[in-house]
Design a protein around this nucleic acid. Structure first.
Ligand SMILES: [Zn+2]
Length: 261
DNA sequence: GGACATGTTTCTCA
DNA sequence: TTGAGAAACATGTC
C-alpha cells in the first residue's frame, strides 16, 4: 500500500480524525518497530499530549505531538494506519495502538514488519540525515529533468530512488512509465526532451489522480495499468496486447513493449 | 517447497 | 563515483 498516494491518503485521514484528541494510553505491541528511541521515550512523548499537525514527505508520514516531538512512520510494503472506536475493529497486525481520552483508538499496522517508527524534533534535519530527497509532487520540471537525464542507468530505478525523488515505488513507477510511453529499462540519459516532458507530466498526473482515487485501484481509470495488476489481467489497457514483465533494479516491472519504448 | 509481494539497507562486484 | 545484483529483514499467499 505505501507509496506517495497511499501515504497521502493516510495523512488526510489522520488530519481529519486524529488531531487534538488527548492521548491516554500508548501500547507499543512490537518494540522492535521503534528505532532510535526506547519504548518509554515514545510513551513519554505521547501520553497526556495530543497529535496536532500532520505532514507527508515522500512515503514518510510525520505527526507532530503537542510536546514538540514528531512521530515518524515508515510503512514498508504492508503498513497502514487505522482509527476506530471499538477495540474489536483493531487491525490484525497492530504494532502500535494509541488510546484517546474520548475512547477511540489509533493503530499503526504493519504485517510484514518492514516498516518502523521513530521520533524526531526536526523534520528537515531528519530527511537530510535519512538521505530522503525532494518530494515527487514538489519537484519542478527543471529539477526533475536534471535528475532523470543525469542517470546513466535505467529510468525505473531512478524514479524509485528516494534520494533522487521521494515517494515513488514499484507500482507507481510502472504506472508513470506506462502513461509516459517509456520502457522501464530505457536509460535516463538517453531520453529526449519530449520523453522527459512526458515523464514529468505523467509523474504529476499519476500521483495526483491516484490520490483523488484514494489510492484505490478499483477507482482508477480503465486505461490505467495498476488495476490490471490488481485483477491479474495481463492485457494492455491501451492496445490489448499481452503485458510483459522484466526485472529492473531488483523489482518486477510490468509494462507493454508495444506502447512503451 | 518455492516463488513472489506496494520497501530499505548493506554489501559485493564491475 | 555509479550502478547492478543479491541478500537480509518478516510474514503471508498462491
Ligand atoms: Zn499496449
Amino acid at each position: 500500500m505505501p507509496e506517495l498516494p497511499d501515504v497521502e491518503v493516510f495523512a488526510r485521514d489522520f488530519a481529519s480524525r486524529g488531531l487534538n484528541r488527548k492521548i491516554e494510553s500508548v501500547d507499543l505491541r512490537d518494540p522492535d518497530r521503534l528505532r532510535g528511541s526506547a519504548p518509554q521515550d515514545l510513551r513519554a512523548a505521547l501520553n497526556g499530549y495530543a497529535f496536532e499537525t500532520v505532514k507527508r514527505h515522500g512515503k514518510v508520514l510525520f505527526v507532530k505531538v503537542s510536546c514538540g516531538w514528531w512521530l515518524v512512520m515508515h510503512f514498508g510494503m504492508t503498513g497502514f494506519t487505522a482509527f476506530y472506536d471499538d477495540p474489536a475493529d483493531e487491525p490484525g497486525h497492530a504494532r502500535l495502538v494509541v488510546g484517546f481520552a474520548d475512547g477511540g483508538f489509533f493503530a499503526f499496522d504493519n504485517q510484514r514488519k518492514l516498516g518502523w517508527l521513530e521520533l524526531t524534533d526536526d523534520v528537515r534535519a531528519y530527511l537530510r540525515s535519512q538521505g530522503i530527497g525532494p518530494d515527487a509532487l514538489e519537484l519542478d520540471e527543471a529539477a526533475f529533468r536534471e535528475v532523470i537525464s543525469g542517470t546513466r542507468g535505467s529510468v525505473k530505478p531512478a524514479l524509485m530512488d528516494q534520494e533522487k525523488i521521494a515517494g515513488i515505488g514499484n507500482v507507481y513507477s510502472d504506472e508513470i512509465l506506462f502513461q509516459a510511453g517509456i520502457a522501464p529499462e530505457h536509460k535516463g540519459n538517453q531520453l529526449d526532451g519530449q520523453q522527459l516532458a512526458r515523464l514529468f507530466e505523467a509523474t504529476r498526473n499519476v500521483l495526483r489522480q491516484a490520490v483523488e482515487c484514494r489510492a484505490d485501484p478499483a477507482r482508477m481509470p480503465d486505461d490505467w495499468l495498476t488495476p490490471r495488476r490488481e485483477d491479474g489481467d495481463d492485457t494492455c489497457p491501451r492496445c490489448g496486447r499481452p503485458l510483459e514483465t522484466c526485472k529492473v533494479g531488483g523489482r518486477t516491472a510490468h509494462f507493454c513493449s508495444h506502447c512503451q519504448a
